[in-house]
């Protein structure tokens, strides 16, 4: 595990020079625009999606600089590389999730637009969705060259979003999901069950996509 954590540190150092004021400002502006939306759930969901763009940075930078060759020269296995990068992903998701959750709570208190339970359910649902999406993206990045897989990697986002929207349409007859967040009223009451399901989904997702990524990365040639 220590080698995997050292690799996570390497990933953080790799990404660090690219987290400039300019790039971060774009995300902050996008999130700030979302904050004007009267619905805090909308801010929460969209901000998580904006943040997920950064998760692909280690792959993009590694490809640009042929860093996979460096990883092969270091005293670590390919499994350590995958493990380290999944730890990076989990940490990034946790950090982004925590920051965005705190801001959402603040906005909710300010406006009182949704209940705490509703906000919690929205957060857990979006957090799970973003994690699943980014885990699937990681499998794709570990299999294909980053430049060729970018479009493919956004398919999970499109599919998951489309399924979500379709489900909302079917269940309510109209797309109230992004309008008021009221469609979560019923779900909010079931927050313990939803949390448990999401937690189980997250654990399964990380486990399965990690195993697949190890197999794919083991086969990759540089």
């Amino acid at each position: 595990m220590s080698k995997a954590l050292t690799f996570t540190r390497l990933d953080l150092l790799t990404v660090k020079p690219y987290l400039t004021v300019k790039t971060m400002s774009i995300t902050v502006i996008m999130c700030a625009l979302m904050a004007f939306n009267p619905n805090s759930s909308m801010f929460l969901g969209m901000s998580l999606i904006f943040m997920s763009v950064y998760y692909s940075y280690p792959f993009a930078i590694a490809e640009k600089n042929s860093m996979d060759l460096m990883y092969c020269s270091l005293p670590i296995t390919r499994k350590d590389v995958v493990k380290g990068r999944f730890i990076f992903l989990a940490l990034a998701n946790l950090l982004a999730g925590s920051v965005i959750a705190v801001i959402s709570v603040f906005l909710t208190i300010l406006r009182g637009s949704v209940s705490a339970q509703e906000l919690f359910v929205v957060f857990v649902s979006f957090f799970t969705m973003i994690n699943i999406m980014s885990c699937i993206q990681f499998c794709i990045y570990f299999r294909f060259p980053f430049s060729k897989s970018r479009l493919l990697a956004y398919l999970p986002m499109v599919i998951i979003s489309s399924v979500g929207l379709a489900f909302a349409q079917l269940s309510t007859g109209q797309n109230r999901y992004f309008e008021t967040g009221n469609s979560f009223e019923t779900a909010a009451a079931l927050w313990p069950a939803i949390s448990a399901v999401c937690l189980a989904l997250l654990a399964a997702c990380y486990l399965v996509t990690f195993s697949i990524s190890v197999k794919l990365y083991e086969k990759k040639e540089f």
Binding site: L10, L13, P17, Y18, N65, D68, S73
Partner: peptide, 18 residues
Amino acid sequence: YYASEWTVTSLEKAVSPF
């Protein structure tokens, strides 16, 4: 094969712990 935006110092920080 090092990150082009690294300085030599950050390269050492990244590689030495291995």
